[in-house]
Amino acid sequence: MTQLSVPKWLLLPAALGALLVAVPILAMALSVDWSNFSSLVTSEASTDALWLSLRTASVSTLLCLLFGIPLAAVLARTAGTAATLLRSLVLLPLVLPPVVGGIALIQAFGRRGLLGSTLDVLGLQVAFSTTAVVIAQTFVAMPFLVISLEGALRAAGTRYEDIAATLGAGPTTVFRRVTLPLALPGLVSGTILAFARCLGEFGATITFAGSLQGTTRTLPLEIYLQREGDPRAAVALSLVLVAVAVIVIGLTRTRRYSLTAGTP
């Protein structure tokens, strides 16, 4: 261990903070009915929910990248009132209760919503479809990507971009070969955060997309439902979700170290 560089008294609240997270998780792990664990988590309803969660979270994360990278770039490289307003707007889902997001999504994409009839004409049935789950997840998760990437882009600054331009690289080349690679740690952690948020999405999904096995009932919805029916299954599935989250966080950590090792 290296010499501790923080005031010693910080250790007490730090330890309490860590315990606040660790104890409930540990308590849950201890209360799992291990003898029936595999049958509880491999029921059709459970595997459907897990598979649906993984699929929708992946698609939603891709959408977050598709929209979030350009948004972060625009926000990081512009200043002024318009940019501030746009940033507040984009980050709004971060501070909104997800259920409010769900209600807003119904007003926009619902069957009687602002765009509902337009989508109908286009042959897109959003209501009660997996598409609705993906929209809900993208809505709540995108700010995580944007905020993380924007921070990385701002930290990287324009110094390398300027040099790249004087070397003859056009804006697109600069963005692709300099801007994004330099912001890669922020992009990776933002992506993983967004994925984790998608995976954990509950409120907006249940409000906007509904809950049907294999179509809209993701793992968090299944867990919430099982609380009523079979609390043991709820605990077991919660642990599965924790495991997935831990793997995701683990990925962030290792990626971050390997990336920052390359910078002086």
Binding site: R159, Y160, D162, I163, A164, A165, T166, L167, G168, A169, G170, P171, T173, V174, R177, V178, P181, L182, G262, T263, P264
Partner: peptide, 16 residues
């Protein structure tokens, strides 16, 4: 990027 003027900065500023 279209000027054909290269710039050498104070720090080498190599792409890391």
């Amino acid at each position: 990027h279209a000027r054909r003027i290269a710039l050498l900065a104070q720090d080498a500023r190599l792409f890391p």
